[in-house]
Design a protein around this nucleic acid. Sequence first.
DNA 1: GTGGTCTAGACCACT
DNA 2: GTGGTCTAGACCACC
Lengths: 132, 132, 132, 132
Amino acid sequence: MLLFQIDPHSGVPVYRQVMDQVRYHLAAGTLAPGRQLPSIRELARSLAVNPATIVKAYSELAHLNIIEIRHGRGAFIHPDPPVMPADERRARLRQLTNQLVVEARQLGAGEKEIRDALEQTLNEINPEPPET
Amino acid sequence: MLLFQIDPHSGVPVYRQVMDQVRYHLAAGTLAPGRQLPSIRELARSLAVNPATIVKAYSELAHLNIIEIRHGRGAFIHPDPPVMPADERRARLRQLTNQLVVEARQLGAGEKEIRDALEQTLNEINPEPPET
Amino acid sequence: MLLFQIDPHSGVPVYRQVMDQVRYHLAAGTLAPGRQLPSIRELARSLAVNPATIVKAYSELAHLNIIEIRHGRGAFIHPDPPVMPADERRARLRQLTNQLVVEARQLGAGEKEIRDALEQTLNEINPEPPET
Amino acid sequence: MLLFQIDPHSGVPVYRQVMDQVRYHLAAGTLAPGRQLPSIRELARSLAVNPATIVKAYSELAHLNIIEIRHGRGAFIHPDPPVMPADERRARLRQLTNQLVVEARQLGAGEKEIRDALEQTLNEINPEPPET
DNA sequence: GTGGTCTAGACCACT
DNA sequence: GTGGTCTAGACCACC
């Protein structure tokens, strides 16, 4: 059961894909706060990428307060994730839905199709956030 | 008179922002199929960016069959927009909603909040696509 | 007149020294907001270090909102630097003076000697901040 | 009963924090020359860190002539603290005040604010060093 | 064992 | 021209 997988040909930088995977697993509950992440060397080996690439991914996640790096100990999901003020959050959400709708329309999707896709994804990614 | 706005400090490549703006206006109905786009020189001047940047944006859009460049005439929204097979479209939609939900969860948003944001955006960006 | 110089044997990471130099020049007024920094390659060459090291220094400074990196354009001192709430600022200041006094005492310096050193430094690093 | 506090998440190496605490207590007068330090085992347990980390901290302090390790007896604050030539001391002081002022300016602090912070700290950390 | 820094050099993306 | 990503591999620091 592989927790991480990346596509080296997707055009998306590998370190970005790693970051996205961590965030995905966090959202999906596969990785809970406080849990330890794979070590840099180990993950680098299993993904067949250079360790420096994982270093960059982890560092960026640490900057975002999503993970915590303890020198000589390893990397861990941050125990208490950062919160964002409700209004900022709403603004960011609108930005995200905007991108979604613009591209969806371009694909020719109707409103129902967009809503359905969202519902499926909501079901897939675990009911509710861990009581925030 | 079309509204184009770009933020040179946002980290998103300028040519990408120009593309996004065209796509936004298309989705929102502000730009209809067949309509003419601003000329490269004009747009470059009004956005204070290098004309080569606009050239790149328009070329990419032409490549995606979203616009059509007629030599010596200008650039136009493609009269019949590209269609995508339903299954591909669904896959892409799921990818988009996935990104949305992952980040929304990270912000601490609940399901309702996400749905509400989507509904608002759907209202804002014009009821239905030009008959699908 | 060299703006930057580093000591590869000081034990302080080179990228850290570069960051410190930028911050120093900013504080001293040698580098004003909006001004362009040396390009990565150029600085790397003149300091005889690897470009990746400068990339790291600049990236970290960008994270701190001290500089702004514009892809394909260069790196610039951020036009409006970040402000910190007065109470946070005071707390941080106390932390800094604490470190200073602890080490100064260890060196056997009396109060006057510490105050004098501070006064000299204040004179050296330009009278007042550019009217904040 | 001495107060040692460390923050494993601060980014500062734990052994460094232990060193800093000893130096702090020395400067503040809480630990006087000749006094005995907590044993390695005891301190490691009470701080919940690896004993090897305390060993390293004590070794470094011994190396700096700040403490003295007497085999089988324990660790003690060095009876006569190391002295540094006046000019070296001044140079080091200037380095320290330089760091202080650079960061203080970056925070937007004026000269008065910096001086005030220093004065408060001087008051807090006990009037004068044990006669220099 | 863990993470952090740096080099030399290739290749790509943006303006 | 500019900055960004990645590799292969060395060496150091922390626990």
